[in-house]
C-alpha cells in the first residue's frame, strides 16, 4: 500500500474528477477508468484499487440518481428487480476477490472491457423497434420525456431472463474488478432488452449503488480500503460527475457509444499487457 501524502491525495482527487465526469457521461460509474489508473499508473495493488474505485462508484450512483429522481428516467421497478441478481453476484464476487491473484483479475478486466467495447460497436446502428406508438409499457416498462428529441419515449422490457443474468454477471464482475457493472448491464439492457440507452444508463447507475455496496463492504471489512485516499477519490468523483451530468444531457448517444468503445479498447490492451507479465 502506497504512503499517503498530500500530493498523492491531490493526484487521486484529479483522477477521480476525470473518471467521475466520464462515468456520468457514459453511465458507467467511473470505476472503469479509475481502477486502471490506480493499478497501472500509480501501481496500487489491484484489490486496493478496486476497493477505492467501488467506494467512488457508490458515491457516483447516489449523486447521479439523486439528481435524476423525479424525472422518470430511472426505471425503479426494473432496477429493484435486477438488484436481487446484481447484489447476489456482487456478494459472491467480493468474497472470491480476496482469493484471486492480481494477474488473473487484470486479465479478467481486459477481457470484460474488450467484450463490451465490441458489443457497443456492433450495436451502434441497432434501434429498438416498438410498432404500436400507444404501447402499454407493462409492469416493468417505462415512459420518460426525452430532452434530446422533445418526445415522450415509451418502452417495454424484452427478454427479462437475459437482463437478470446480465445483472448477476455485472454484480460479480463489479466487486471482483472494482467497477460499477454498468459496463455489462447498459449494453445488454439497451441492445437486447428493448430499453433506450438513456433509461438503461439511468437505471444501471441507480442499481450500481447497491451492487457496489455489497462488494465494497467486504473490502472495507478486510482492511483493503485506505480511508484518506478513498476520500480524495470520492470527492474528485463527486465533482466530476456533477460536471458530467450538466454536460451529459446534451451529448448524443452515438457519440457516447463510440467514445465508450474507444476508451475500453485502450484500457483492455493495457490490462492484458500488465496481467500477462
Amino acid at each position: 500500500m502506497p504512503v499517503v501524502t498530500a500530493s498523492l491525495a491531490l493526484i487521486i482527487f484529479a483522477a477521480g474528477t476525470v473518471a467521475g465526469a466520464l462515468g456520468a457521461l457514459l453511465g458507467l460509474g467511473g470505476g472503469v477508468f479509475l481502477v486502471p489508473f490506480l493499478n497501472l499508473v500509480l501501481g496500487f495493488p489491484f484489490s486496493a484499487a478496486a476497493a477505492i474505485s467501488l467506494t467512488t462508484v457508490i458515491a457516483t450512483s447516489s449523486t447521479v440518481s439523486a439528481g435524476r429522481a423525479g424525472k422518470q428516467l430511472i426505471n425503479m421497478k426494473l432496477g429493484m428487480l435486477l438488484e436481487v441478481a446484481t447484489a447476489a453476484g456482487s456478494f459472491l464476487g467480493g468474497v472470491t476477490a480476496q482469493f484471486v491473484a492480481q494477474s488473473v483479475l487484470q486479465k479478467m478486466f481486459g477481457f470484460v472491457a474488450v467484450i463490451v467495447a465490441l458489443i457497443m460497436l456492433s450495436r451502434l446502428r441497432h434501434r429498438n423497434v416498438i410498432l404500436d406508438p400507444a404501447a402499454d409499457p407493462g409492469v416493468l416498462g417505462g415512459r420518460y420525456h426525452d430532452a434530446e428529441s422533445g418526445c415522450t419515449v415509451t418502452y417495454r422490457v424484452k427478454r427479462l431472463p437475459l437482463a437478470v443474468a446480465a445483472s448477476f454477471v455485472a454484480g460479480n464482475v463489479s466487486s471482483l474488478l472494482g467497477i460499477g457493472g454498468g459496463i455489462i448491464k447498459v449494453p445488454v439492457l439497451n441492445a437486447w432488452c428493448g430499453i433506450p440507452l438513456r433509461a438503461a444508463a439511468a437505471t444501471s447507475a441507480f442499481m450500481i449503488g447497491v451492487t457496489a455496496t455489497a462488494g465494497a463492504v467486504v473490502y472495507y471489512g478486510h482492511g483493503l480500503l485506505q480511508p484518506t485516499l478513498a476520500a480524495a477519490a470520492v470527492l474528485g468523483v463527486q465533482l466530476g460527475s456533477w460536471g458530467g451530468m450538466k454536460f451529459g444531457a446534451a451529448a448524443s448517444t452515438k457519440w457516447l457509444k463510440i467514445l465508450m468503445a474507444a476508451v475500453l479498447f485502450i484500457v483492455s490492451a493495457m490490462m492484458f499487457v500488465r496481467g500477462g507479465r
Binding site: 400507444a134 409499457p137 448517444t253
Partner: peptide, 21 residues
Amino acid sequence: MSEDRTTKSRAPLGKSRAPLG
C-alpha cells in the same frame, strides 16, 4: 435526432398511464 427509435407520442406524461392505474 434520437438513436433509439422507440415509441414516441406527444401525449403528456402520465395521462396515458391511467388504464394501468
